[in-house]
Write a protein that binds this DNA or RNA. Sequence first.
DNA 1: ACCTGAACACCGTTCAAGT
DNA 2: ACCTGAACACCGTTCAAGT
Lengths: 193, 193
Amino acid sequence: MQLHKRDVVAAATALLDSYGLADLTMRRLARELGVSPGALYWHFANKQELLGAVADQILAAVPEAAGDWRARIEGVCAGLRDALLSHTDGAELVSASFAAGQSAVMRRILDRLTDAVTEAGFAPAHAELAARTVVYYVLGFTVDEQSRLQWDAAGAELPADQSVLDDDADARFRFGVDLLIDGIRVADPSVLR
Amino acid sequence: MQLHKRDVVAAATALLDSYGLADLTMRRLARELGVSPGALYWHFANKQELLGAVADQILAAVPEAAGDWRARIEGVCAGLRDALLSHTDGAELVSASFAAGQSAVMRRILDRLTDAVTEAGFAPAHAELAARTVVYYVLGFTVDEQSRLQWDAAGAELPADQSVLDDDADARFRFGVDLLIDGIRVADPSVLR
DNA sequence: ACCTGAACACCGTTCAAGT
DNA sequence: ACCTGAACACCGTTCAAGT
């Protein structure tokens, strides 16, 4: 039967979860699907475009956030991080696809953050810059966190050292988000507080 | 004559500047140096380690920054961005090497930023988190900026559209840095204003 | 329209053997 | 100690030809 885009993306996501980004190759994916490597190029222009589709599938799990601008920023950040952490190398893949301009969903998330910052009182151009700063933080933090997590999971068997207060990754993550929110709160001239 | 680490790094940097990161391969580098590919593995454990050495060479141009904590953060950020922009794909290379933990100089830059944030009144653990946030911003912004710059340089010949106020990249960059500095200023409980 | 087969032009890494 | 030669096990992408 025919090969459809969604089957390809589903198989790619399965490959990612089982073996990681380095083993997500066009040839291996084709083998898994029982087709020749060339077949994939009927459905996707190149590997970047396919990875962008996988990134968008991962990001589909990020929920809409409600509340005031502050709560919405916090919600989007937490949801984004959770989505990235639930797939092997998810942060690295989405980060690369975003940088390559291949993730439509990431752009929508950026727009939602821009809206929230606009509500905080920023002019549109400045709001997008602030929203980008938030995205860079979430991606950078989570790429880092996930690489440590995956390194620890392979072998290392937790050294159980300074891992009581220090490794509360959630709290560390929120600390950075709050720093950015504080910056947004005071940087805007129209808000006194 | 013998091959030395610094010759290898110099040739790699030249290759990067001329053809970009995608064409900086172990085989091509060996060809350029007139040795067999295997020779490189006597001097470097693997490609990641070699790229880390190239990243550190690029980062050697980042100057020490003086002044109060605020001026030092601004100085390091500006110096870092300048260093990245002066090599083809410099931001992407350094970003990847930092994420892979292969850049010793990037860790020192992080330490300098941590010192500055500590001087602003943060406890060490929080200071490093804030410093990381700054690094994620500079890397994210500059990867983005450079990919657009290089895309425009190839062909596109400037559309000359909304590129008067909007594309003042320096100002856009400083806006984000200031946002972070504002966040650092207010997030700390011991500093009033 | 959709896919195969086969090719093109490469990769990173290893390692016995040489000097 | 330092490097060669050759191999191993792959890559992404293209494209005539088939159905």
